[in-house]
Design a protein around this nucleic acid. Structure first.
Length: 102
DNA sequence: ACGGTGACGCTCA
DNA sequence: TTGAGCGCCACCG
């Protein structure tokens, strides 16, 4: 059923709004959902995300600018972001430049 | 219902 | 600055 959207589904919906070439952080995403301290919960949702190709989960990074983790490999995540136009330096991203606001 | 786990965040030394 | 520890929230067995 679609009522009672779980925290996960909420993450996917919001994350889908992030355009190509931009990224967001687990903290900001959680905040947008309503749980400012649920960064971990967001990561948990991304890891289990059943909408892999539908949701740009690779556009979500840590609040400190690091890439974080990725179900298909952090390395892969970096490559994908680079292809989308995000410049990654020393496995870190400039949140001020590529950070997307909901 | 309870405890453990995880793609995190922040503070302290 | 870097490293280690504690706290946070949601999902699963």
């Amino acid at each position: 059923m679609k009522n009672k959207k779980t925290f996960n589904s909420r993450c996917y919906e919001i994350l889908r709004k992030v355009p190509r070439g931009k990224i967001t952080t687990y903290k900001e995403l959680a905040k947008a959902i309503g749980v400012s301290r649920g960064a971990r919960a967001v990561g948990n949702a991304m890891n289990k995300n059943p909408y892999a190709p539908k949701v740009p989960c690779h556009r979500v990074i840590k609040s400190n600018g690091e890439i974080g983790g990725f179900a298909y490999g952090t390395k892969k995540k970096i490559e994908m972001l680079r292809k989308e136009g995000v410049e990654i330096i020393d496995r870190k991203v400039d949140l001020e430049r590529y950070g997307f606001e909901f």
